[in-house]
Design a binder for these strands. Sequence first.
DNA 1: GGAACTCCCTGAAACGATTCAAAGGGACTG
DNA 2: CAGTCCCTTTGAATCGTTTCAGGGAGTTCC
Lengths: 346, 346
Amino acid sequence: MAAGPPPRRATITDVANLAQVSPAAVSKVLRNAYGVSPAMQERVRAAMAELGYRPHAAARGMRGQTYTIGVLIPDLRNPFFPELIEGIGDHLEGTDYQTVLGPGGSTPETQSRTTDALVDRRVDGLVLIAPALPRTRLEQIARTVPVVVIGRHGKSTEYDGVVDDDLMGAGLVVDHLADLGHRRIAHIEHRDTTRGIPTTMPQTVRAEGYRQAMERRGLTAGIDIVPSTYSEAGGYSAALELLARPVRPTAIFAGADVAAIGVLNAVYEAGLRIPEDLSVAGYDNTTVAAMGPISLTSVDQDGHLMGGNAARLLLERIERKRDRSVLLSFSPTLVPRRSTAPPPHA
Amino acid sequence: MAAGPPPRRATITDVANLAQVSPAAVSKVLRNAYGVSPAMQERVRAAMAELGYRPHAAARGMRGQTYTIGVLIPDLRNPFFPELIEGIGDHLEGTDYQTVLGPGGSTPETQSRTTDALVDRRVDGLVLIAPALPRTRLEQIARTVPVVVIGRHGKSTEYDGVVDDDLMGAGLVVDHLADLGHRRIAHIEHRDTTRGIPTTMPQTVRAEGYRQAMERRGLTAGIDIVPSTYSEAGGYSAALELLARPVRPTAIFAGADVAAIGVLNAVYEAGLRIPEDLSVAGYDNTTVAAMGPISLTSVDQDGHLMGGNAARLLLERIERKRDRSVLLSFSPTLVPRRSTAPPPHA
DNA sequence: GGAACTCCCTGAAACGATTCAAAGGGACTG
DNA sequence: CAGTCCCTTTGAATCGTTTCAGGGAGTTCC
């Protein structure tokens, strides 16, 4: 109906005046605080509705909370992250909290800047997705504001953690390939050259899981790790290197789907067929992996579940229901597809 | 070195005390405001550094600005959006502004909620990416805070716009296919059933561009639009429908790459070959399109450029350098790949 | 019937910055 | 040398909300 530009946003005082109560009372209603009669509750709500009142988050933050949860997201292109975000958002649905994303980039510097920016904006809690920051920095942040770290394996007393068991995930892939009869299974690892990248990152654990599983299956001789990056270009160059080996591997386990795609490109260009000549597996079970023409065997982490739990842990901290730290480790599952099969002449 | 938890965050007053100046002076230094002597500038900066002072964004927002740019991002999985975000971020690099993303979902209701949440947090400006909100709502928001809308074709006096010329883009695809000899070119359109979705959305313009181009090329009889959704499932089902036609199209132009992927799946399962039996083209030139095994002909929009310009327009508004609205329209380019070729027996 | 509790509710003081009017101090002008 | 002007600096008010210490009005209990 009314379409004119509101000359001024209604404040808590406006509401208080209209409802004939004190601003403090309105504040209580706003926060569902204790000590409010139904009658006043009613009147205040009516006044808020009439004025179209919306609380000023920044002003609230000056004394109390901002009802904002900050999420550091390093790489917007990583198709796994939206799952996490949705998990977080769904868990926060119905609460007064609002998710806000800070694009953090991939370097410790940019991530540090973005995290600071979120802290400056007084978020009530922080979810850090696979942060490339040293542990001391993480703990320093966690002393300022409740923090949940997703995807880092190290434990800390300062913050909570949610991880996928990458050690197990890598094992699932090796077992799957070994069961098919492969003995020479190569692995593409993400090896970051930037200093300050900690060893508790998923890529390191995945490589370690690969190594352990190979040993467990008695395939120590077939261990072959190519350091590269989790990217299409990284997978591509690593695959070229592997295809040039005097004795080629019969299977390539890329530590991430994106890298596996690069492998597919290289294999495609080399004129080899998948899975007849070479098996390829990835990690993350991204939507790309599921596409018909690609059909990539991959490891699935339940991102939605992980995100939801991260949000839960964070709220527990914010609402002071818990004060000791927790590390939640989820088990991944293998999703076999057409990119893996028994090796040639097996 | 010092690792202990700072007992309290330094405030502007702490800085003022240490530097022996007034808080107002510190505030000026902070904002690079006029009327500050180099000497004081120097002393204040030193004090800020010594205390590790960081401005409290919420408190700043109470009177002045928050130095925060809010970005509404409807679908985190859309691989085109990261380009835009990066473009925005790069343009803001070096300024005091920080980008913050609000995950908006795909419905008008959730997008409206997220936008409100950003406004409640007093962002200085708002970039709305392909918002599914009615124009009146957009204008209402724009009267509260500077707004740039990306991807909507309608003009408004209240907000600025940045669009890709989808009419031209669709024409590029049709021309390309027609040049190859195709006459029966089908199009998959995104038809939203939700009420309140305006007709200035890209999908509508793309469909119109397809129609106009077909007529221009004298292929009116070959016009065949399948309403579906821009998603893998949507492309899949639309392709099934098209493949079941008594007279099959020789080329399918999906309005988005994701939908094109669905088409590929269906075609793959039907045992047809691309491009020998059928040509397929998409839109958006996502990373998936470039992958070797897929190699999808697509239309490229320069997202980085568009995002950067959106940020520029927004800053102009925030800094009051301009008060009349602008609509920037960028021209897309065609990226031909292996998924398109002359039709069978041509 | 008075003391002790409960409940609701309120006034005023924060929170950390920005803004604004005005004060102070030189340098320039006539 | 007084008057003007300009530039730097400051004190105090202000933004919208929460917090905190009480104030009043009923109840309950002995």
